[in-house]
Design a protein around this nucleic acid. Structure first.
Length: 378
DNA sequence: CGGTAACCTGGGAT
DNA sequence: AATCCCAGGTTAC
């Protein structure tokens, strides 16, 4: 029944995109006898949510690109695709599988942090930082998601000292333990496995699956969660009510969770909007623009929190959201993009607007290619 | 307590 | 071709 594929598991079919009619892009795969999928418009436009700047930029490794500007993933038991209607238009969604579409829409809006106005936040950041303002002009819609904490925790346990392709593969292995929700564009999607289901996997099995030393992080953390009073799922959710530092401290008691991973979990799933995941990229930003006196120093736990403080001092309560954009701007792909934008701006002054359009198109293509690279395996 | 070496793995650079 | 290096870190000395 499966459509033949040219490469094994992590390829992204749909490239190049078929020249099919614009609005209702029905994925050619079967859709769980729901017939033709229906698309609904979200109230978020591209300046509030850019899919390419939100899904393949390291917040989640579970969403896959299933079309030129379409991404698909599971939100709890719901299998959802999102796509842009046009370059600047609204985002629409499609429910491939759900038992309750009203609940699914609520879950989707919750997952997208839809109540938070990105435009408002960014206008505040831009007033405080002209550099942010400049980047924001070209990277509109980089939003912070509100993921399930267990799902987020397991993903970032896999991320330590690792690369995107392998993280994606490992997360895929864990995900495949969960209930199968369906396939879109030739890719399989699963509900994230419960803590109980996760506990059925041994460290040895994980090592065989290529997790390396992170295997014991997974089993250790799953066990630690299960022995929490009230159960680990509830315990994790309770961290949403704590102050940032308390939430971080609690997370760091779990094996394999250090400052960086804890900050990711806090920001991407625990409503800790001022959490700053300090990795090499952010360290570079910080030493270049925020704390030049630390240039050349090594990234230690102490300096890690020093960087976080500096970000919060500059951007305030939602510093994590500001950091997200600055981080994305540092990704090689986006840097290339920004460069071609700034070229086009300069040339527009002297030459014609035509060339700028061409460069912009090239940049968009670059964006799409990058997304593919991030999603697909080797 | 602050600073440094192992730690799994695989792809790309040297 | 054999090694080294690095990738969104954490842990153990």
């Amino acid at each position: 029944m499966k459509r033949p594929r040219t490469s094994p598991s992590l390829s992204v079919p749909g490239y190049p995109p078929p020249p099919s009619p614009p609005v209702t892009p029905v994925p050619s795969q079967k859709l769980y006898r729901t017939g033709k999928p229906k698309w609904f418009t979200l109230k978020l436009d591209r300046s509030e949510l850019s899919l390419p700047l939100t899904f393949p930029t390291g917040q989640t490794f579970r969403w896959k690109q299933t079309g030129e500007i379409q991404f698909t993933g599971a939100i709890g038991p719901h299998l959802v695709s999102l796509r842009h209607l046009s370059e600047d238009g609204a985002v629409s969604y499609c429910l491939h599988r759900t038992a309750d579409s009203a609940a699914a829409e609520r879950a989707l809006l919750d997952f997208l942090n839809a109540e938070i106005s990105l435009a408002e936040l960014w206008s505040g950041f831009s007033e405080k930082d002209p550099r942010f303002a400049e980047l924001a002009r070209h990277l509109r819609g980089a939003r912070v998601l509100r993921q399930d904490p267990l799902e987020c925790l397991m993903q970032f346990l896999c991320s330590s000292n690792n690369n995107i392709a392998r993280i994606t593969k490992m997360v895929g292995f864990i995900s495949s333990l969960g209930f199968h929700l369906g396939s879109v564009g030739g890719l399989e999607f699963h509900q994230f496995p419960s803590l109980d289901r996760l506990s059925s996997v041994s460290e040895e099995e994980l090592r065989e699956a290529g997790f390396g030393y992170r295997a014991k992080y997974i089993t250790g953390t799953v066990h630690a969660l299960q022995s929490k009073p009230g159960g680990g799922t509830e315990w994790l959710l309770s961290l949403r009510k704590l102050d940032l530092q308390d939430a971080i401290d609690e997370l760091c008691t779990l094996p394999g969770v250090g400052p960086k991973v804890a900050a990711c979990i806090a920001l991407f799933s625990l409503d800790q909007h001022s959490a700053i995941p300090v990795d090499t990229h952010v360290w570079k930003i910080a030493t270049s623009y925020l704390l030049p006196e630390l240039a050349g120093a090594r990234l230690t736990a102490k300096l890690c929190s020093r960087v976080a403080e500096a970000f919060v001092r500059k951007y305030g309560e939602y510093a994590g959201w500001a950091q997200t954009l600055l981080f994305i701007a540092e990704l090689p792909a986006q840097k290339a993009l920004l460069q071609s934008y700034s070229q086009s701006i300069q040339e527009d002054k002297h030459i014609s607007a035509e060339k700028g359009r061409i460069l912009k198109l090239a940049a968009m293509k670059n964006e799409a290619m990058t997304v593919r690279k991030n999603v697909s395996g080797p």
